[in-house]
Design a protein around this nucleic acid. Structure first.
Lengths: 194, 194
DNA sequence: CTTAGGTGAGACATACTGTATCATATGTAC
DNA sequence: GTACATATGATACAGTATGTCTCACCTAAG
């Protein structure tokens, strides 16, 4: 097995990237079932044996895709805005990610994570990035008094994030900025102290 | 192709049920990728050709499972309760379904629906049963004045249902009745005109 | 130049897929 | 009960996918 992270061999990195791009296209167009060693080899022009050398198992390809392409790694919003504005901005970034390629990869992974604990663990790791920022944001809101002190931030997070995933996964609907703004206004609004 | 709905041949219905049970087990244990004609045949003791006769395509088996096993067909709550109590009861039923087999089948289908429009259409049809009851409930709440007239019922539905799916699909967590009660209290509460 | 290691091309056994055939078993109508 | 229609079981089959292996060639690094 070849680990492109270990060495800096440019040949390895080149091949790895070409194959991964092909795998991403396959996933995007035909779903996770289409991401096989054979089809990645055909689509990328790489020898079939080489695909096996980089990823011994089929799931490894998908895990690699999840690492590289579906980072819900959102940047923290500027601090001079109000809490509601910062939460709105953060969720709009999350919504944009869900509307794009990340949403598709995530959809595939959710189906796999139910029966593959490696995929589930990877999903957990990815999930930590985005929502943690939101959690910090809400915690700071309680600290500085802009959020009512008795607010259940865990539940509030579910209520803010849940509808976004619901619309993306079950409804296959794009999430507009207006929707996010409306969502924040109705759910975060009653928790604000003034 | 054999349609068990068309005729009443007991032999057909028996075989169909045995195979479908095996398919359900396969899905539950190993995921949708394991639901193949070959493995259904082996698991049910039926000839491989017979499995093809009942479902020419692999997806047909999954669609059949979705029809039979994952009905989120919830019963409407009694009318002598308050709106909040009725919404809570309805969502607790939905949560119970998500906690059980239906949740697992649903998880598989969400992954497939992204790339298979037949599965998506079936999912849409199923989705219509449960949430429609909630929609009716909220509409009646506006009619009889227990809900503020300016309430956005579409958004409220997303806020009530979204967190349940979020916890089930992404967090793999059981949804407790307490969680549902808490959810309804914080999200529906501010909309009540008391 | 030399060496170590990655790649391409192909061979190979095995397994899975989809279809076809025919004898047997089952259900239905008379 | 007999006769007919249909479903099933068993098997064969070609085509394809899977996973591993070998060896000649190429690339990167000292």
């Amino acid at each position: 097995m070849i680990d492109p992270e270990a060495g800096t061999n440019p040949q390895v990195q080149r091949t790895h990237r070409v194959m991964l791009d092909a795998a991403r296209d396959l996933l995007s167009e035909n779903g996770p079932g289409a991401v096989t060693h054979l089809r990645v080899a055909e689509a990328s022009g790489v020898a079939r044996a080489t695909v096996y050398r980089h990823w011994p198992d089929r799931v490894d390809i998908l895990l690699d895709l999840l690492r590289g392409g579906a980072d819900l790694h959102l940047s923290p919003p500027p601090e001079d805005l109000s809490l509601a504005e910062r939460v709105t901005g953060l969720l709009q970034n999350l919504a944009a990610a869900l509307n794009g390629d990340s949403g598709q990869i995530l959809t595939a992974m959710i189906g796999l994570a139910e029966w593959d604990e490696d995929v589930f663990a990877a999903l957990e790791r990815m999930r930590a990035f985005g929502p943690r920022l939101l959690q910090d944001l809400l915690a700071s809101g309680i600290d500085d008094g802009s959020l009512a002190s008795h607010t259940d931030t865990d539940l509030l997070m579910d209520v803010l994030i849940g509808p976004l995933f619901l619309r993306r996964l079950l409804h296959h609907a794009k999430i507009t900025d207006d929707y996010v703004a409306h969502l924040v206004a109705t759910t975060l609004g009653p928790c604000l102290s003034r």
